[in-house]
Nucleic acid binder design. Structure first.
Length: 492
RNA sequence: GGCGGAGUAGCUCAGUUGGUUAGAGCAGCGGAAUCAUAAUCCGCGUGUCGGGAGUUCAAAUCUCUCCUCCGCUACCA
C-alpha cells in the first residue's frame, strides 16, 4: 500500500534555523503523526539544500570550503529537529551522493527527451552581486558594476508544458492550496512562460552538481533542489520503493516559494512523465507586530529560547493551534501565554489533576468499574472527524474540535459532581469518573500528534498504555500513575 | 499598472450550493461551586456581517458601485 508522503522544503544552509523553518517542520511532523494515528503509513521527508551561489559565498566568508560549511550547518538543523521531536522518515542533503547521482540521471533523461537545449543568454550582470539582475533591478539604479554579458547555458523547455499545467491547475481543486494561491499561480501563467535556465558555467559558479553531458557547467540550484522529493524515494533506482511513496500527498511550503513548486517542479515532472504531487500547500508567515520576522529587522523569535522556557510541546501546540493554515499569524508572548494558560493549564492540565485526584482519593488509585459505553461523552466523540480535517488541512480546526471535547469533559464533571456522588452512590461515582478518565485518555491520544511527550505524561498519569481511539481502552482495576501538574500555569 | 484576495462581536477567526432569532475561542461583566493547577461550570453581545444600490418571498452569502487593507507580478521558511 502506498505511504502518505509528506514533505517540507529542504532548507537553505546559508542561515541558521529560525521559527519559520521550525514551523513548517513541526507542521509536517504533526500531520504525519495524525495520519499515523488514523492508521495510515506515512513517509515524511525533510532535509537541506546545500548548493548554489549563496552557500558558496557564505562559505567563503567563513573561510571554509562549501562542503565544510554545509557540514557545520547541518547539525544545527538536526539538533533542532531532535529537540522539537521531529520524527522524519528521511533527512536528505543535496550534497549526498545518492541525490547527486539521481539529479544527473534526471538531467540525462530530460536531455535525451529533447527537453534540454543549449542557447545563448544575454542579460545584465552585476559583478558586485555576482548574479544577473532583472530589468526592474537595473532600472532601480541600485546596482553598480553592471554590464551586459552574453553566456551560453542549458535551458529546460518549461514553456512546452504551460498549457498542460494550466489545465491541471484549473481542473484539480486540490492541487494548489489554499485557493488564493492557486489563483496567484494561474495569474502568473497568463503570461508566456519562458524556458528555465538550468545551468551555470563553472567559471562563474563552481558549487553545484555537474551537468553530466557538459563538464563546464553545474546545475541551477532550484532544478537540483526540487529533485530531492523524488531522489529520496529513489527515483530511477528502486521502482518498488519509489512507487510506494510517489506521488507526494502534500508538499508543504512557505508562500514565498510558490512559483518554484507550482510551476518549475510540475513541468519538470511532466517532462519525466511522472505523476504530479496531489497537493502543494502554501502556508503563511509568522509575524511579530504585523511584520515579517527577518534577520535584518532583528525581531526573530528563537525557537530554542521558547523551548527552553516553556517546553517543546507547548510551543508545538501554540504554533499548530494559533495559525489558520494558509494565513499569516502574529506571534506574541502575550498570545502564547494566554493560549497556554487557558487551553493547556486550565482546561486540560487541571482536568487531568481533578480526575486523577478523585480516583486516587476515593478509589485508592484504582480505575473504577464501568460498562457504560453509551454516555454524553462517548456520544460527543463522534463529532471529531480527524480525517476530514486532515484532508482539508484544517489544523487549527482539528485541534479546536479536540479541545471542545476536553471542555465537555469538564462540563460532564460539573453536571455529575462525582465528589459529591461518591458519598451517596459510590458505584455511580465510579462510572462518572471512569467516563471522564476514558474520555481524557482518548482526547489525549488525539492530541498526541501535536504534543507527543506531554500526551505520554498524561497517559502515564491515567495508567493507560492503550493506543486505541475506540471507547473502552482504559482498563478497570488498573492502577493510575503519580499525579503531577502537567502544564503548570504561567504566572506573569 | 495588470491579476487576485480580504473587510463578520474588544481580539483571532467559523459561516457549506442564498432560507428558521449571525456563531466559536479568548478577553469583559454577573452568579454557582469548592474535586482540581485561585483551576471549573452557568448566564450575559442593540455586531449598521466595510458604505451604498440592485436581484429575490428571503442575502453576510448573488450583481453593480464606492472605500480601506493585503498578496502576486520569476531572491528568500
Amino acid at each position: 500500500m502506498k505511504n502518505y508522503y509528506i514533505t517540507t522544503p529542504i532548507y537553505y544552509v546559508n542561515d541558521k534555523p529560525h521559527i519559520g523553518h521550525a514551523y513548517t517542520t513541526i507542521l509536517a511532523d504533526t500531520l504525519s503523526r495524525f495520519r499515523q494515528l488514523i492508521n495510515q503509513k506515512t513517509f515524511f521527508l525533510t532535509g537541506l539544500d546545500e548548493h548554489g551561489l549563496k552557500v558558496q559565498q557564505a562559505a567563503e566568508k567563513n573561510g571554509a570550503n562549501p562542503q565544510d560549511h554545509c557540514d557545520t550547518m547541518a547539525p544545527a538543523f538536526l539538533e533542532l529537529w531532535k529537540r522539537l521531536n521531529i520524527q522524519y522518515s528521511d533527512f536528505i542533503r543535496t550534497t549526498e551522493e545518492r541525490h547527486v547521482k539521481i539529479v544527473q540521471n534526471i538531467l540525462t533523461e530530460v536531455y535525451n527527451n529533447g527537453d534540454i537545449y543549449k542557447d545563448k543568454y544575454e542579460g545584465w550582470y552585476s559583478i558586485a552581486e555576482e548574479r544577473f539582475i532583472t530589468k526592474k533591478e537595473l532600472d532601480s539604479g541600485l546596482f553598480r558594476d553592471v554590464k551586459k554579458i552574453e553566456e551560453e547555458n542549458y535551458f529546460f523547455k518549461m514553456s512546452k508544458y504551460q498549457d498542460q499545467l494550466i489545465k491541471k491547475i484549473e481542473d484539480d481543486k486540490e492541487f494548489i492550496q489554499p485557493s488564493t494561491r492557486k489563483n496567484e499561480v494561474l495569474g502568473f501563467l497568463k503570461q508566456d512562460l519562458s524556458d528555465l535556465c538550468i545551468s551555470r558555467p563553472k567559471t562563474r559558479l563552481e558549487w553545484g552538481i555537474e551537468i553530466p553531458f557538459d563538464k563546464d557547467y553545474v546545475t541551477y540550484v532550484w532544478f537540483d533542489a526540487l529533485i530531492n522529493y523524488i531522489s529520496s524515494p529513489k527515483y530511477s533506482e528502486d521502482k518498488n520503493n519509489f512507487e510506494e511513496n510517489w506521488p507526494a500527498d502534500v508538499h508543504l511550503i512557505g508562500k514565498d516559494i510558490l512559483t518554484t513548486h507550482s510551476v518549475y517542479w510540475p513541468t519538470m515532472l511532466m517532462s519525466l512523465d511522472l505523476p504530479l504531487p496531489k497537493t502543494i500547500f502554501a502556508h503563511g508567515w509568522w509575524l511579530t507586530d504585523e511584520e515579517k520576522m527577518s534577520k535584518s529587522l532583528g525581531n526573530i523569535i528563537s525557537p530554542l529560547m521558547l523551548i527552553d522556557e516553556f517546553g517543546v510541546d507547548s510551543v508545538r501546540y501554540y504554533l499548530m493551534s494559533e495559525m489558520v493554515l494558509g494565513l499569516d499569524a502574529t506571534f506574541s508572548m502575550d498570545s502564547f501565554i494566554k493560549r497556554y494558560n487557558s487551553d493547556l493549564a486550565n482546561d486540560l492540565g487541571n482536568l487531568v489533576s481533578r480526575v486523577s485526584t478523585l480516583i486516587d482519593k476515593n478509589f485508592d488509585g484504582i480505575i473504577p468499574q464501568c460498562n457504560d459505553d453509551k454516555n454524553d461523552l462517548s456520544n460527543q466523540l463522534s463529532n471529531i472527524d480527524i480525517e476530514e480535517k486532515l484532508n482539508t488541512f484544517k489544523m487549527d480546526g482539528l485541534i479546536q474540535s479536540i479541545m471542545d471535547f476536553v471542555r465537555s469533559i469538564n462540563v460532564y464533571m460539573e453536571k455529575n459532581q462525582p465528589w459529591k456522588l461518591v458519598k451517596e452512590d459510590k458505584d455511580l461515582a465510579g462510572i462518572v469518573l471512569y467516563n471522564a478518565a476514558e474520555s481524557l485518555r482518548i482526547a489525549t491520544l488525539m492530541l498526541s500528534p501535536v504534543m507527543p511527550q506531554k500526551s505520554q505524561e498524561i497517559l502515564d498519569t491515567l495508567g493507560s498504555n492503550d493506543s486505541s481511539l475506540e471507547w473502552g481502552g482504559l482498563k478497570s482495576g488498573e492502577k493510575i500513575g503519580s499525579i503531577n501538574p502537567i502544564f503548570p500555569r504561567i504566572v506573569k
